[in-house]
Amino acid sequence: MTTLTAHVVGRADEVPVGEGRAFTAGGTPVAVFRLRDGSLRAVAAVCPHAGGPIADGQSDATVVVCPLHLNAWRWDGTPTTDAAPLPVYPVREEAGTLVVEV
């Protein structure tokens, strides 16, 4: 089993409500989203289908949609299309910073 390492990737206020922003967590590019209920989600920043920028995608409480070909993944990483799964990472807010475990 792989152990996860926590990384401070940025400030919590860098991710506006409803949008996604990309960061690097120990050499791994991650896209962090703040949902409309204020909660955070972190997924791989690069889509497994064609390398699309996930942080530019639109999202809701259930899914994130890649802007290039509109593939969608649930927040557990499972695809709604026949694309490969999207890696997901634990994320939390700690003293005004964003912490992602990779």
């Binding site: 206020d13 860098e14 922003r21 960061f23 690097t24 590019p29 920043a45 390398g51 996930i54």
Partner: peptide, 13 residues
Amino acid sequence: ASPGQFRTSLPLT
């Protein structure tokens, strides 16, 4: 329009 509007979304590419 919002903070980080023009930030790169592919930081390592």
